[in-house]
Amino acid sequence: MSLNGQIKQTIQYNKQNEPLFSNPQLVTENINGDICVVDDYSAVVVVDKGGQFRFKYPESGKSTHTIDDCYGIVCDKLGYILISDYRNNRIHQIDSDGKFVQFVLTEQHGIRYPRGLSIDDKGQLWVCNNDSFEVRVYKYRS
């Protein structure tokens, strides 16, 4: 949307005029200008800045990783996408092409029902930990 309230772009359908999202919840932009959308709390759909579909994570039937209630997404300065996985008590890290890299944090790190995520200019990862009603700060990148 422009500063005067004019809609600049709507992202809704792929090239085949099929809906890209079933229930979009959260949105962020990565370093490449891609738009990363949490859809129906269970997947991330990424489109390029022109609105063209790039990938979905996890990809149905092709990934061993699942997301069970995502309430947080953030992109770092290297192009990685971090996704909170609320019911599985972990933070996924995927690359800018949708490939799983690692679980950045898990229950062994004190993560219980993670929700909101943020990365500050010092490279610290902020996690809203719903189980303990607190915000925790982790060293992520320097």
Rank of each mutant, 00 (worst) to 15 (best):
F103G: 07
V137M: 13
M1Y: 06
S132Y: 09
K122F: 10
L26R: 02
F55C: 01
C128V: 14
T64Y: 06
F55T: 00
P58M: 00
F133G: 12
N14C: 04
Q6W: 11
R115M: 09
P24M: 03
S2Y: 02
L82D: 12
I7S: 11
K56F: 04
L105C: 13
S96L: 05
N17A: 13
Y71W: 11
S142M: 00
G123E: 01
D76A: 01
N17E: 14
Y13T: 09
Q124I: 10
D97G: 09
P19L: 15
Q102D: 13
I7H: 05
K99W: 02
I111A: 09
T10M: 14
L78A: 11
V104S: 13
D39I: 13
I73Q: 00
Q16L: 08
N129D: 03
D97F: 06
F53V: 02
K15E: 15
R87Y: 15
L82N: 10
N14Y: 07
D120R: 07
H109K: 06
G116N: 08
T10C: 10
S42H: 14
G5D: 14
F55A: 02
Q16H: 03
G123C: 01
G123W: 05
G33Y: 03
T10V: 12
V135S: 09
F133T: 09
E107V: 08
Q6G: 15
E18W: 12
G51F: 03
N14D: 13
Q9Y: 12
K15C: 15
I111N: 08
S63D: 06
Y86T: 05
Y71C: 02
K49F: 10
A43M: 13
V44T: 00
E134R: 04
S84T: 13
D120T: 13
I31Q: 01
L20T: 05
T66H: 15
N14A: 05
Q16R: 05
V74F: 13
R115N: 01
Q12D: 13
Y86V: 01
F103D: 15
N14P: 06
F53S: 00
N30W: 04
Y41V: 13
Y113R: 02
P58Y: 10
D97E: 07
Y71P: 02
K77T: 11
N17V: 09
G79H: 02
Y41N: 08
D97T: 01
V44K: 00
T10W: 10
V101D: 05
D40K: 14
N32D: 06
N88M: 10
C128R: 09
V46Q: 04
P19S: 15
S142N: 09
D34P: 03
N129S: 06
R90K: 14
R136A: 10
V101T: 07
S2V: 07
R136Q: 03
D95Q: 00
Q93S: 08
Q124V: 13
G98I: 00
P114Y: 04
Y13G: 10
D97Y: 07
R112A: 14
E18A: 10
P114T: 00
I81Q: 07
N130C: 14
I119E: 05
S84V: 14
R136V: 12
L20I: 05
K122Y: 10
V38H: 04
Q52K: 12
D76C: 00
L26V: 03
D69P: 02
Q25R: 08
V45T: 04
P58V: 02
I11A: 08
E18Y: 12
G33D: 08
R115K: 08
Q25S: 07
N14T: 01
T28G: 06
K56R: 08
V37N: 06
Q108D: 11
Y57Q: 08
S42E: 14
R136N: 07
C70P: 02
R141Q: 09
